[in-house]
Simulated scan of single mutants.
Amino acid sequence: MNRDAPDGWPRGGEWNWLWEAYAVGLAVATIVAVVLLDHRFPGNVVGAAIALSAMAAVVLAFGRRVTRSPDRGWRAVAFVTMVVGLWILAMLASPVSVAAVIATYPVVFSTLPLRTALVVTTIVNLIPLGILLLTHGIEAPNLTMAVAITLIGVVAAPVVGTVITRSMKQRRQLALLVAELAATRAESARLSREAGTAAERERLAREIHDTLAQGFTSIVMLAQAIEPELESDTAAAKRHVELIGATARENLAEARAMVAELTPSPLEEPLPAAIARQCDRLAAETDAAMTVRIDGDLPAQSMSSDVVLLRAAQEAFANIRKHARADAVTVELTPTGTGVRLAVTDNGIGFNGHPEGFGLRGMRARVAQVGGTMTLATAEGGGTRLTVEVPS
């Protein structure tokens, strides 16, 4: 991952009020020094104060705008030239103004490339000594002090400039990291929303398949059975009409519970009672002989585990209705060492290969979500045996 500034990123984009306060504060401090030291280093106090004040004003007016502009070019050169030029004017007015040289360092290093800035600051540091030599020659007073100050500036400027540049680069990298983190968090949130949407769709698909779709299938089968019974067996037809009404009411309750995101309606009663009721419905709809063995000492389970067992029973009964052609079904709900086992066995035609319809895939997914196991095998003597175990 590239941590350098991208194209178009302002190299001085980290210029802030601290640099402005630094430059303006030094200009003000230098004005005070010019006034206080005029008796020792006489000069034009008013001229120096005006030039230093103008330098501070230029920094405040253009510093942030120039250093944050992605396309600087001549603007950067003009800005640096104005600041350095005003400092030179102040120094020509009063030699004490040389103290403001360090105010030019952040201006130069935040505006120009590092190599160019190093050259410019070196020249700036040599200017006071050059002016002294041009005006007074080698016999100039305080020449030794001027040489010492110049050497200090020549050595200090690259160090200060490098620190400024590195600080700006680190701030730039930090800004990039923050931007990347924000983008990553936004992408993570988007993916999380998509995953949540997909999971909710899958959950609703399983709920609809395991409840509403199976209820409608029962209604269709019962309706088909009624037609030949209307003339030959009125009692059976009436019983099937009642089953259609009961199934429709249960489907309506399921739909309302799903819409309201409530507990599935069959589990408004204990799991054994819900399983027994499903067994009664299957017997009434198919006339199959039902054998139900429900242990009376089942361990306490979570609601999610109870839902898995109930949905597994509903799916098994739906397959028996549609495919098995069974006339005998055995349902067992018993405790295990670690949870509860549901076993549904029929004596129907069995299955060939590895059936993997939507219902079975959904059942496997439900069982896996609660850490359970599911097996589908051929029963002894033919038919199918479905076994689901869930932890308590």
Rank of each mutant, 00 (worst) to 15 (best):
T234E: 15
P299K: 03
V46D: 06
H136F: 07
I320Y: 02
I88K: 01
L89P: 00
D233P: 07
L129I: 04
E356N: 07
A313D: 07
E139Q: 13
P266I: 08
S192E: 15
G215V: 03
G196H: 10
D71V: 12
L191N: 12
A195H: 15
V259Q: 08
A199F: 03
T162I: 09
L181K: 13
A324L: 03
V308R: 03
N352W: 03
P355V: 08
G371Y: 11
L18I: 14
A99M: 10
A326H: 09
V370G: 05
L222T: 08
A225V: 06
R3D: 10
T67Y: 05
V160I: 14
A318S: 15
A93R: 03
E207H: 15
F358D: 10
I31S: 10
D346V: 07
A328P: 03
I31T: 09
L282N: 07
T81S: 15
A140P: 02
Q369H: 15
A57I: 11
V147L: 14
R64V: 03
V77N: 07
E200D: 15
V329A: 09
L342D: 02
L18W: 14
A99T: 03
A324M: 06
I208P: 06
D297S: 13
I275E: 00
V367F: 03
G357T: 08
E268S: 12
I149Y: 09
